[in-house]
Design a protein around this nucleic acid. Structure first.
Lengths: 249, 249
DNA sequence: TCTCCATTCTTGGTCCAACAAATAGAAAAT
DNA sequence: ATTTTCTATTTGTTGGACCAAGAATGGAGA
């Protein structure tokens, strides 16, 4: 078994913040997680019923429920009526949802996110050029082709994101991909705004194609230029004028 | 007022997942957030009491409490006895905690995170060289100097992270900085492991100094080389042999 | 014996009532 | 005016109750 050192770090942080007073709910959260560890439960396995958990840990059912709400918010369990709480793999979704929870997205934030994307998508240039296989690039082509098929703005934005996601995934870095996906709602929204202003699927497809071709030619300079231009192209739709349209539509 | 489009996107996602059935708790969560918005409450302001919220939204106190647990897990409110729920700015902490919740950190993950850091810290080169002021670089010097002062491994790791955090912050990109900070527990842990293996504060300080000097000279090539070398230097401590020590210590 | 349906029983969802603990705010004493 | 004491309010926790939905059971019919 591989004990996770990160967990230790997280606990240390928690312990530092909460000296001695732990509420029954927090205690239950920890006890349930211990239970999961000790019994070696895996995704999909069911926890004991709320009443059983209460009896097991000497707590009232309402207390158990409050603890389960926290676990649910963390994406660790999913509660289905009559079935009970089952271990969930919705953790990433919970992170994404929480991440996007109270960030007010102003036009400035749009610019910020696009700047972030430029750093990322330009920064992975070397790795892609060195390691991407022909199959990888063919996959990019396939994803890119779907942009022309779809009609609705939402679908087009989704396809657009999928292309960039596929691009980022070529960096073969899970951390990077996870962080990039964290921004999916924002990025997709940026794309929606852009495509709502003007149907630009053809332009987008062309820009993507050029990017792929640069990768096929292993041309770093062209890739860096095209990515920057492509992301800046998207920026023109999220400038000052979109501040109103974003609120209205 | 600036309505936030990201919120709309998040809602759309939620709505798509939950067709019609919303539990009273979820409804409460949303209603409380509306209440905060409508009343223009800010960080530190207190919400109505649990009983008042229950009466206000036609819900039992336990239901209100379950909703508050969720808000608390999201870092949106902090509940203090007798005071009640006050709006909190712990949102980022909650994200960080949740992000680090169930990622098992294997040596492979160490490598992954270091690879992510290289992409980031190398990718911000251009922006730093173009925009960093002398004061910025002097600040880097100051942060770097603290590495030599501290003795404990934890403090040294913390200082080390602060230097890299300061470096990343020079990119002037909030999204990037937020994402980088998300990895703080992991990065710090990597640094701890490195420094535990051998006291390398002097080496670290020197490497940082060289990086700063490259920035002062606006030398992109030197910066890129030094950053890569510096991050790879850290990697030697988290190779295969640290797989055991990571589990044991 | 097998299938299908009605019943029953379990379980989560919600609410209420009650008590304990903590403490803010008022009241009283100095 | 300051300190102390007290009271009322609020959260923390528990147990119980009821409902609705779904799983499990068992029986009736083929």
């Amino acid at each position: 078994m591989s004990t996770d050192v990160l967990m230790l770090a997280a606990m240390a942080v928690d312990a530092a913040r909460e000296p001695a007073k732990v509420s029954a709910v927090d205690r239950l959260v920890e006890q349930v997680r211990e239970l999961v560890r000790n019994r070696g439960l895996v995704i999909g396995d069911a926890l004991p019923t709320e009443r059983d958990l209460g009896e097991l840990f000497q707590a009232g059912r309402n207390t158990v429920r409050e603890a389960l709400q926290i676990l649910k918010a963390y994406g660790i369990v999913e509660v289905r009526p009559k079935i009970g709480a089952v271990l969930s793999d919705r953790h990433e979704d919970a992170v994404r949802k929480l991440f996007a929870f109270q960030n007010d997205i102003s036009p400035a934030s749009f610019l910020d996110v696009q700047g972030y994307r430029r750093i990322i998508e330009a920064g992975i240039c070397d790795h892609i050029i060195l390691h991407a296989t022909d199959a990888d690039l063919a996959h990019l082509d396939a994803v890119n082709a779907r942009i022309l098929e779809d009609q609705s703005i939402d679908d087009a934005a989704r396809c657009d994101f999928e292309f960039h996601e596929a691009l980022v995934s070529l960096a073969s870095n899970r951390t990077l991909l996870t962080n990039y996906r964290l921004l999916q709602p924002v990025i997709t929204q940026i794309m929606r705004v852009g495509k709502a202003t003007k149907p630009v699927q053809v332009d987008t497809h062309l820009a993507h194609t050029q990017i792929i071709n640069a990768l096929k030619a292993r041309d770093r300079v062209a890739y860096a230029y095209l990515i920057s231009r492509h992301l800046e192209y998207g920026l023109q739709f999220v400038g000052v004028e979109s501040a109103r349209s974003a609120g209205g539509d």
